[in-house]
Amino acid sequence: MRNTIAIVLTLVFGFGLLWHGTDGFRAFTSETARRLAILQEPKLLPAVQLEDQNGHTFSWQDQRGQWVLATFIYTRCSDVCPVVEMNLRRIYDAIRQSPHSHRLSFLSISFDSQNDTPEMLMHHAHHYGADGVTWRMARVPNERELQRLLNMMGVIVIPDGKGGYEHNAAFYLLDKKRRLVRIFDYNNPQAVIAELNHLLAKEASSKVVKK
């Protein structure tokens, strides 16, 4: 009898533990967990100084009034980053065609501040057809600030010992209040475009109502 009770209790405990540990069997990896958490509770970004491909410095404040779709790359990367940038390009092109083009800007942030000088970034921007205004390439010159930003965004960068980096790739959507509101898979641009159109349209209509 007590044995049976114990079985039931352990089953309940075990189920509870796993349920809790996976947010209700939805998040088995820290990556999905992070996305889920952000979806439920957007996170405020730390203040950082960025430097774009023209050598101009700017910060999130200067983006006021626009949402930002950001991603993290380094220009010498030869495996994921090209895919990420090509997909960002697809989204960029699609949004430019849409009525919301003025509400969103694009930002590729390099985490390799040593090598990715403004010249390199400029070259990179040309390569992917970024106009340097709506889509900018940037780096974070201050090492401490960069680390803080990467930590907060959940970007993990590990040197691979061959001069490159292994890192996780995604698109990060920042809203007007400098909050991280969404993390998207980098390999499904169509879904990102659909979601962006949806979000931006909602935003536009709510503004109309307020007026």
Binding site: N3, G14, L17, G21, F28, T32
Partner: peptide, 29 residues
């Protein structure tokens, strides 16, 4: 042992806790 007569409660406990710590998420954390 009164509570663990046939050993199943202990086994189940061990399996669920082990599974929890094998989740990639817990490994990271």
């Amino acid at each position: 042992n009164c509570w663990n007569e046939n050993g199943l409660p202990g086994l189940l406990l061990a399996i669920s806790v082990l599974t929890f710590w094998l989740l990639p998420r817990s490994v990271d954390a």
